[in-house]
Nucleic acid binder design. Structure first.
Length: 451
RNA sequence: CGGGGCGUAGCGCAGUCUGGUAGCGCAUCUGGUUUGGGACCAGAGGGUCGCAAGUUCGAAUCUUGCCGCCCCGACCA
C-alpha cells in the first residue's frame, strides 16, 4: 500500500479524551475514531489488525473442530423470554422496537439464539458433540464505557457454544476450548494465563478467565510466576485425545483474579520468590453451564437408550475487538505501538527518505514491487514528508520492520533495516535486500511457546 | 447511577472571574529556502464559541434548562 493513496489520519498530539495508552495510540495511529461513548469506527489500519486477530481466533477454533456460523445482531425478545433472561438482564441490554411495536434487542450474547437453532435441528445423540461459534458484533449498554475499545458498548466477540450428551463429554469440549485459547493468545503474541473464575450459581470448576498481564489492567491478579513462561500446546496437539494432562499442567499452579483470590492459599502454595501480583486484562472466558439454557428452552436429544436427554452446554468467549487494545497495552513504548508480527497491519514499512529523487524513488519502487510480489505486506511511505516525520509515523503505527531508503545509503548501494521492537538496525545491500527481507519477515511456524 | 471535570478551527489550548470586532501552537493550502529522527521564512484558508431560552444597546463571557464527552467509584467480555 502506498501511503500517498492510503487513508491514515495520524494525530500528532494526544487527544485529551484518551487516558490509557492503547486508546491514545489507537486514536493517534488512525486506527479508530469514536462515534459515541463506547462505539467506534474502525479505520483502515485498525481494521487490518482486527481482521488478523479475528482470523487467528477462527483458525484455532476450526482446529478444534468447532464450526463457524453467523447469527444476527438483532434478536427477538421472545427468545429471551423463553430462557427467562429478558427480565433478568437489566439495563445493559439494549431493547428496541420494530415498526410493528414488537420487542427486539441488540444481542449482548447468543446462548438463546444458538440453543434455538440447535434444538430445532438436532434430535439425536448421534449428532453430538457439536461446537458452533460465530464472530459477531455485540452490544452491551455498559453503565460506563471506558478505555477505548477495551470496554466499549459495541464490541466484536467470538463466542462458541458446545453441545454434548453428558457432563463428562462436555468437559472434553471444555478442555478443547481451553487448549485452543492457550494457542490463540500465544499466536497473538500474548502471554495469557488461565485463572479460575466464579461459576456463580451453577458451581463446579469449569470456568476460566484468560488474563494477560499489563500495567493498566482492570483487575488485580495473583499467580505463580512460572505460568508466564509455561509451554503452550503445539500445532500437533490432537484434540480428540484426552486433553486433561494439559489442563492439569496449566491449572496446577496458583492463579486467581481478585474476586477469587485466597491469600492464605496463595501464601501456602506459592513460594515467596514465585509469587506475582499484577494487573490483568481479561481477554477470554470459558464456561460450562450444563443445562441452564437447554432446560428452559427444551433442547434435548434422544440417547442410545431412546430416552430424551437435555444437552449439556458451555459457552466460550474471546473479546476480539478488545484484543486490539489489549495487545497494545501489552506491547508499546514511548514512541508508539509495537505490533507482534502475527497481527501487524503491515509487516514492513518502507520509507522513502527523499521522494522525488530519481535514484531513491527507483530503489523504493523496485523493493516495493518485489516485496509485494513476494506476498509481504508493505506500507510504502512515498509521500514527500520530511524524513523525521516519516520515522515518527512509522514508530507510532508500530510495523515490525522498517526499511529505510535514502540517498546517502544508496550511494554505497545500501539500505537500512530497523526492528521496531528491539530498535536494532542493520545495513543491507540493496541488491540482496529482497531476499534478506523475505527471510527476516517470514513468521516462524506457529507452534509451541517453549518454556 | 453517585462524585469530579470538560465542551471555543482537524488536534492541543488561551480568552469566561471583570460582557465590547474570536485568539495562540500544531496540522492544512500557496510560494521560496531546506531535506537521515516531527525544519525555516512569507502569505492564506478554516470557528452558528455544544444546543435552546433568557438578561442586556451588546453574550464565548452572566442566568436557567437541556445535550454530549472524559475521569474516579459501583458494574462488566
Amino acid at each position: 500500500m502506498r501511503m500517498s493513496r492510503y487513508f491514515l489520519p495520524i494525530l500528532r498530539d494526544d487527544p485529551k479524551e484518551a487516558e490509557i495508552v492503547s486508546h491514545r495510540l489507537m486514536l493517534r495511529a488512525g486506527m479508530i475514531r469514536q462515534s459515541s461513548a463506547g462505539i467506534y469506527s474502525w479505520l483502515p489500519l485498525g481494521l487490518r489488525v482486527l481482521k488478523k486477530i479475528e482470523q487467528i481466533v477462527r483458525e484455532e477454533q476450526d482446529r478444534t473442530g468447532a464450526i463457524e456460523v453467523l447469527m444476527p445482531t438483532i434478536q427477538s425478545a421472545d427468545l429471551w423470554r423463553e430462557s427467562g433472561r429478558y427480565d433478568d438482564y437489566g439495563a445493559e441490554m439494549l431493547r428496541i422496537k420494530d415498526r410493528h411495536e414488537r420487542d427486539m434487542l441488540f444481542g449482548p450474547t447468543n446462548e438463546e439464539q444458538i440453543t434455538q437453532i440447535f434444538r430445532d435441528s438436532v434430535k439425536t445423540y448421534r449428532d453430538l458433540p457439536r461446537n458452533l461459534y460465530h464472530i459477531q458484533w455485540k452490544f452491551r449498554d455498559e453503565i460506563r464505557p471506558r478505555f477505548g475499545v477495551m470496554r466499549g458498548r459495541e464490541f466484536l466477540m467470538k463466542d462458541a457454544y458446545s453441545f454434548d450428551l453428558t457432563p463428562e463429554a462436555a468437559r472434553h469440549s471444555y478442555n478443547k476450548m481451553f487448549v485452543a485459547y492457550l494457542r490463540t493468545f500465544a499466536r497473538l503474541g500474548l502471554k495469557a494465563i488461565p485463572m479460575k473464575a466464579d461459576t456463580g450459581p451453577i458451581g463446579g470448576d469449569l470456568s476460566h478467565e484468560f488474563i494477560i498481564l499489563a500495567e493498566t489492567g482492570e483487575s488485580q491478579v495473583y499467580c505463580h510466576r512460572d505460568l508466564i513462561e509455561m509451554a503452550v500446546p503445539g500445532e500437533e496437539t490432537d484434540y480428540d485425545q484426552d486433553l486433561s494432562p494439559i489442563i492439569a499442567q496449566w491449572t496446577s499452579l496458583y492463579a486467581a483474579t481478585d474476586e477469587m483470590h485466597d491469600a492464605a492459599r496463595f501464601d501456602k502454595e506459592v513460594p515467596e520468590a514465585a509469587r506475582m501480583d499484577a494487573r490483568g486484562i481479561e481477554v477470554g472466558h470459558i464456561f460450562f453451564f450444563g443445562s441452564k439454557y437447554s432446560k428452559p428452552m427444551k433442547a434435548q436429544v434422544q440417547g442410545p437408550d431412546g430416552q430424551w436427554t437435555l444437552v449439556e452446554s458451555g459457552s466460550y468467549g474471546i473479546g476480539v475487538s478488545r484484543l486490539a487494545g489489549a495487545i497494545i497495552e501489552a506491547s508499546h513504548d514511548e514512541a508508539g505501538i509495537i505490533w507482534p508480527a502475527s497481527v501487524a497491519p503491515f509487516t514492513i514499512g518502507l520509507l522513502n527518505l527523499k521522494a522525488g529523487d530519481a535514484a531513491t524513488d527507483a530503489a523504493c519502487e523496485t523493493l516495493y514491487r518485489g516485496l509485494t510480489a513476494a506476498g509481504i505486506e508493505v506500507l510504502y511511505d512515498d509521500t514527500d514528508e520530511r524524513a523525521g516525520g516519516k520515522f515518527k509515523t512509522m514508530d507510532l503505527i508500530g510495523l515490525p520492520w522498517q526499511v529505510v531508503v535514502g540517498p546517502k545509503g544508496l550511494e554505497k548501494g545500501e539500505i537500512e533495516l530497523k526492528n521496531r521492537a528491539t530498535g536494532e538496525r542493520e545495513t543491507l545491500k540493496l541488491d540482496t535486500a529482497l531476499k534478506t527481507l523475505q527471510k527476516k519477515t517470514s513468521l516462524p511456524p506457529i507452534t509451541a511457546r517453549k518454556a
